[in-house]
Computed example of a mutant assay.
Amino acid sequence: MKPMIKQLAALVLASGMVTGAQAATTLNLNHQWPATTTGSQVDQWFADEIAKRTNNQVKIRIFWSEGLGKAKEGLSLLQNGAIDMAAISPAYFPAQLPFFSAPNSIPMAIETVDQANTLMQRLLKEVPAYSEEAEANGVRALFFHHLNPYLLVSREKIVSTDQVNGKKVRTWGADMPRMVQAVGGTPVTLMLPEIYESLSRGVVDAAPFAVDLVVNYKIFEVAKNISEITLWEGPAWGIWISKSAWQKLTPEQQKIFEQVANEAMERDRNAVLAKGAEARKTLIEKGVQFHAFPESEKAKWRAALPDFFSDWIKRMDEQGKGDGARQTVQIWKEVVGE
């Protein structure tokens, strides 16, 4: 048996062990980020609060930096019971989670953290398709993180769409590559841990990234330019729990999870905004230059984009899910003021 499989099997067995009159539950959470990011610290707070408020009857053990499997394996690991919880981005699973993936991947459609926060809360409350999609995949979304706007981080100064033409740019999902291609760039799909080395070796010339993540991942060592254009902003990775793990919890414990999840989402929003302001100061000290991206060039890039909303609705219509998609887009446009 492979070492990783042995470890997962042991953890599954351990999570089911009980002692004393009342069962104590340990839930194993595979995390796509290292423990040092702002959001990761919120997740640790979430785990600590769950233990505290359940009197240690429920404990969450976090395995950072894909400790129990790659992020792209997260959904299948939840479904087959190898893990109980996961911190993963839904955009890695556009086929299985098309509703959750849309706000996590459609580019240049949200500008601020608060817009992203409002959008995800409204979608979860007002559009039944989201809970139905989670149920169909045997998972439950507890809460979603925020990220500061993904600006264009590059090895060389870029302040026009013409300068993006011919550049290799890190992307993910189905829509980010099309955004890059719209102005002549070459999309390169990379996972988060690959960004630093890829920029260092010239595998990519640029990468959309948040300023605080540029600090966390030390991207400033290999890319000294940041262009002030928001290429992506939206609800980020979610904290998910498998249906089987959720059913292990008592009704009272489930209520505690929901309450702490709501608090964690608000805590995350505040922490992310504060960290973004702090990161800008740090990056300037590290020699990073911030460049204005002219409004005329932003408009030129947006004009070149495909109609992501219409394309997504069409795809969802083909799956018989068009009504939920139209409802999503209507709320989305209300939130961003279109």
Rank of each mutant, 00 (worst) to 15 (best):
P3Q: 13
L8P: 03
L8F: 07
G16F: 07
T19A: 14
T19C: 10
Q22T: 14
L29Q: 06
W33N: 12
S40W: 09
S40Q: 06
Q41I: 03
V42T: 14
D43E: 09
D43S: 02
Q44T: 10
A51Q: 07
A51V: 05
N56M: 02
Q57A: 11
I60R: 02
W64N: 02
S65A: 15
S65P: 00
L75R: 00
I83A: 08
I83M: 04
I83E: 02
I88W: 01
S89H: 07
A91K: 04
Y92G: 07
Y92K: 06
F93R: 05
P94M: 06
S105Y: 05
E111Y: 05
E111V: 03
Q115E: 15
N117P: 00
N117D: 14
T118G: 03
A129G: 03
Y130D: 03
S131M: 03
E132V: 06
E133V: 08
R140H: 15
Y150V: 00
Y150G: 13
L152C: 09
L152R: 02
S154T: 12
I158S: 03
V159N: 10
T161N: 07
T161Y: 02
T161C: 13
T161G: 10
D162I: 01
V169E: 13
T171M: 02
G173H: 04
A174I: 03
M176L: 14
T186L: 08
V188A: 12
T189W: 04
G202W: 04
D205A: 06
F209G: 05
F220N: 12
E228P: 02
T230F: 05
W232Y: 15
S244K: 09
A245K: 01
T250Y: 10
K255R: 15
I256D: 09
I256Q: 06
F257K: 06
E258Q: 13
V260P: 06
A261S: 15
A261Y: 08
A261D: 08
N262E: 14
N262K: 12
M265W: 06
D268C: 02
R269Q: 13
K275M: 14
A292S: 12
A292F: 03
A292H: 11
P294R: 04
A304Y: 07
L305R: 03
L305W: 08
D311L: 06
W312A: 05
W312S: 04
I313V: 15
M316A: 10
M316Y: 10
E318S: 14
E318F: 09
E318V: 02
Q319K: 14
A325T: 04
Q327K: 13
T328A: 10
Q330I: 04
Q330C: 09
I331R: 06
I331Y: 08
E338G: 14
